[in-house]
Amino acid sequence: MSTAASLHQSRKRKNGVMMALCVIAACIGLAWLALILGALLYKGLAGVSLSVFTEMTPPPGDAGGLLNAIYGSIVMTIIGIIVGTPIGVLAGTYMAEYGRFSKLTTVVRFINDILLSAPSIIIGLFVYELMVRPMGHFSAIAGAVALAILVIPVVVRTTEDMLNLVPNALREAGTAIGAPRWVVIRSVAYRAALSGIVTGILLAIARISGETAPLLFTALNNQFWSSNLNAPMASLPVTIFQFALSPYEEWQQLAWTGALIITLTVLALSIFARSLTGRREDK
């Protein structure tokens, strides 16, 4: 009787200890997030001013802004999305519509998942070998291609998942009234999966807008304003990298401010993207 009671006590104690550890783990995780965001806000906000958005990156020891870096990031992100999205959507369409049960789809899905988490610096090396070395110089277009390659797996994955959620009855209804398959895909499946596909594109933008490693040796960096796609171009992440590791206080301050801008952009994009699909799930 007493052994049973003490066993009960020890089991309850063990349960209490383990559950307390889990709560502590969750607290550590949340505290870490709070610490990072807190430091980012504290250090980043100190440098926010209008000049950040209106002036070029300064030479060491001078005041200035991040205008050319912000511009470069936006340009390369847009080109990356424009190049990568159609390829990703089409590949996802094949996997969910024409080739849903084909062997090719299984292989592509597997390879795509690997590309999705492949180190982005490897993609940078690939584009360096593919474009920078044959062209003989670093260029914004090479940076944009590297970003496009990072966009593709994200868009493929979400497009396939979202098209798979479209009920088959909808497709059959389209086919029954005599629409060919591509019309069914375009006018029925795409329309039903639109918000999901848009979510995927937003997540892809969020992912590439903070990417540094693939730009280091494709777009390189540029101290000055440049809108020439065939020349090196500044970008926010690479500028942050360069400025943060420099010994100059003005540069380090700009790096923090740039980091704050990127983080807020990325967080806003991913919260917006989630709210797009989240609404639908709740219905």
Binding site: L33, G210, A255, A259, I262, T263
Partner: peptide, 24 residues
């Protein structure tokens, strides 16, 4: 909310972790 916060942590670009690691 907590699940979402954890997932947002995954979306923060790695350079932010780097700069935080170096300076903080």
């Amino acid at each position: 909310p907590i699940g979402m916060a954890v997932e947002l942590l995954a979306g923060i670009p790695s350079i932010i972790y780097g700069i935080w690691g170096l300076f903080v």
